[in-house]
Amino acid sequence: MSRTHSDDSSNVTARVVLVGSPNVGKSVLFNRLTGRYVVVSNYPGTTVEVARGQARIGETVCEVIDTPGMYSLSPITEEERVARALLLREQPDVVIHVVDAKNLNRMLSLTLQLLEAGLPVVLLLNMMDEADRLHLYIDHRALAKRLGIPVIPASLISGRGVEELKNIVSEYLSARQNRDLSSAD
């Protein structure tokens, strides 16, 4: 499926890439953002192909790219290789790292690695509903402060957090645009 950004990509001005380990909800987010449907399941490994779609986030028309699951930037499996190659090739304007809030201690390693790589990361803590049910309390503000990036609690299956995410991404993109403009002066 080598569908590159063709057709009406002329007005696409930003590229948003979704990353994260398998089965954390990247495809749900993709569907929520783009209104397209890719199969979502409670089963790791469902996305092996790269899905692309468009979303309007704030004023910006974004190309949204869903990637196969990856545990780290050092690929072991074919799908991880695909995901990393995508990150390297696509020069994303925003990387949304989707994590399972319940297993934060296993997930943050990739966040650190993405930051290390200098990528513009937004962290989405998905499955907050399940974390709540387990009585896990997650201080997302402290986490945002510690990492220096936006951290958004969400429960994608019911749509919670999607609007906030869009706002943050939109802010991010316009801030960057302003920065680019001022540095061009």
Partner: peptide
């Protein structure tokens, strides 16, 4: 890296 990630997680998650 893993150790630091876990340390951060421990700071922000209350079990």
């Amino acid at each position: 890296r893993q150790r630091q990630a876990q340390a951060i997680a421990q700071e922000v998650v209350r079990h």
